[in-house]
Structures are given as structure tokens and as C-alpha cells.
Design a protein around this nucleic acid. Sequence first.
DNA 1: TTGCATACATGCAGCCTGTATGTTAACAAT
DNA 2: ATTGTTAACATACAGGCTGCATGTATGCAA
Lengths: 197, 197
Amino acid sequence: MQQKEPRRSNRERSNATRSSILNAARALFVSRGYADTATPDIVAAAGLTRGALYHHFEDKKALFRAVIEREALDVAATIEQLAGALLAPREALLAGAAAYFDAMAMPGRVRLLLLDGPAVLGVTEMAALDAAHGGRTLEEGLAAAMAPHRLEEKTVKAMAFLLSAAFDRAALEIDAGAARTDYAYAIDRLIDRLITP
Amino acid sequence: MQQKEPRRSNRERSNATRSSILNAARALFVSRGYADTATPDIVAAAGLTRGALYHHFEDKKALFRAVIEREALDVAATIEQLAGALLAPREALLAGAAAYFDAMAMPGRVRLLLLDGPAVLGVTEMAALDAAHGGRTLEEGLAAAMAPHRLEEKTVKAMAFLLSAAFDRAALEIDAGAARTDYAYAIDRLIDRLITP
DNA sequence: TTGCATACATGCAGCCTGTATGTTAACAAT
DNA sequence: ATTGTTAACATACAGGCTGCATGTATGCAA
């Protein structure tokens, strides 16, 4: 039975189809990966045609970029919500780490943000995307917690990158089936070892 | 001018073409990435046809896997050679880190092993490949250096993974243009912080 | 030297991407 | 209310790429 299109405005229609495509694309990118996902399959899952896809997105990579951006935004929001306004630097870092694991527990997120994302869009673009949202808070948090160490700024920045890499790897391992408690403990210990004067 | 094939044995001929394909594939995978490298271009660069490629490799992914394996093997050999038999655990770890950066300085290696590799072959396969060669030595080294801490084995293993992730990220940043000295210093500090009793 | 297997080269089918063109419905102006 | 315009799609098409099937020549073994 085909509904008789309840007279939507143009704006509404666009938003709806755009979301449909994004959702279908996300599901397929997650289950098959970017390369093995064909645009005909995406639009079929969304109940549309490739015309709609190429009307809303410049090409397949742009669609992937949109999926990734939405995902990164959601991760940043989750972290902000869960570990937003902690006062003590140490507690903020630890809570941020836990919040990151929570956020990355959403199925498919690890593959999108940590595997296909860097490979398809390149590290620089992914880094820029990360810096725009969550990356900065980690660097600031670590700088605050390591202030007594009186390190050069570039050193702190480098260590923030390394710590961020550890977060990512932990999320990757947890996603692959490792016990979260093990990695949460290891991360906490790592943070503590880094910031204790 | 076509040389009149100096009467090679069959074995020699196979090895030669196989190497030709591997070399050409590596160069193109590095410069354009796996997805944007077409098999016609690879064999053209090697002065062959696609028939040779599909005779020696099951498919494009298998060729990529062969390139990756050769690369990982070379990295492991370099590290073994540069930081092979250090006695003190701390010095072994520090030398291993430096050797890893040396090994990863080979152009294209970062992209192959840290970007396209995980995305194309999957994390599990890459992890298995890494564990078969270099990953184990890092875990053992860290375990030796952290023995006084009396941690559970799973914790040490997790921290070895995290440290390995830090190595990778450092190599990635150096490859992207960051100063090696900055990251070498940060890594050394990280190691020291981890293993000091 | 005869027969077979190896090492390729060539040709073909199917799929996928990106674009160009067509069609319908919304919106703006009169 | 009517008409022109444009947005939002659907359809059709061209080029390229992958994998396989087939063909051919050479090494090799009996």
C-alpha cells in the first residue's frame, strides 16, 4: 500500500530523504565497510534511487564524510554531557576517558571513526575533524593536569596525541571483544602515571 | 628494444615477475592508496599484464596482503637489528622505540601499515601479523621492565597495546610532518613514567 | 620427443561510479 | 488563480575496473 504523500514541504522532504540516505549509508558502511558498500544498495535500503543520493551529496566520499561528521559530533556531545564540567583536572581526565569508551560503545562507531575514516578521508582531515570537537578538550585537560611538570607546550601537545592514541586503541580492542574493565584500568593507570608530579 | 629473454629457468622467471608486481604495487599503493590503485596500472608499471598478476595472486587484496607482509617483516628485521639484544629492560624499550621510528621512516610505510592495512585487511589480521613479528617483543620488554610493579598479566598486556598505539601515533605524526625529536622525547618520557617503580 | 604443467597474455561479463537528461511537484511572482 | 521557475528527485548512459575463462608458448619430466 503506497501512502499518498501527505503534502510535505520541500524542506521537509529534503531533510527526510537526506536522513534516510545517511541512516542507510551508516548501516551499510558499518556492516560491509566503505569500499564494499555500493551506492545502489544504499539507496535501495532507503527506498530511493541514486538520483537522490547524487542530488544531496557530491559523490560517495562526500556521503561518507557526512556520516563521519555526524558520528564525530555525537561522540563529542556524549563526552561533553558525561564529563562536561569536572573541576579537578585528574577527575576530568578519568571521567573523559570513561565517557569516551561509553561513546565508542555505540555499534559501528569504532569502525567508522577509527578504521575506515582515516583510510578514506585521510589522517589530516580526520585530525581536523577531531580537533574541531573533542581533541582540544583532551589537550587542555592534560595540560592542566600536567601543569606542575613545567613541560614545554609542544611536549604536552605530543603527549596528548599519544594519550589520545591510547584511547583509540583501547576502544578498538574493546570493540574487538577485549574486556572493557581491563583497558579502563590500564588507561586510568596510564593517566595517573603521566600526571603524578 | 626487447631483450631476447636470456633463457631463465621457470623458478627464476616466477620470482622475478612476482617481485616486479610487488614492487610496482607497493609504489602505487603508497602514492594513490589501495582503493585508487587499479590493477591495470600496477601491471603496466611492471611491464606485464593482468594475467600475470592473477596468476601469482588470488585477487587484488591478496596482492596487497603480500605487500603488507613484506613490509611488516622488514620493519621487524630492522628493529631486531637495531635494538636486538639489549640487556637492561629500560634501555631495550627505549632503543626499540627509536628503532621503530627508524623503520617507519621508510617512505610509504606509515600509510601501508597504519592506514590502508587495517582498513583493507581488518584489525584482527593486522594484529595477528604484528604479533607474529614485533608485537611480542614489546610486550615482553614491557613485562620485564614493569616486573617490580607486580601487575596482573592482562594488565601488562593491555598497557603494551596502549604503548604500541602510542608508537604508531607518533610514527603517524612524524610522517605527517611533526618533529621527530618532539615525539621521541614524549615517547621516552611516557616509557619512563610507566616503568619507574 | 612427446606429453603435461607452468607462466603468462587476451578477451569477456558483470558491476559500479559519476554525469547527463528527463519528469514531477513546490514555490514565487503576477 | 495562473504561469514561469526551480528544487527534488528518477532514469538512462558512458567509462573503467575486477575477476574469470580461454588461449598460447615455454620449461620440464618421462
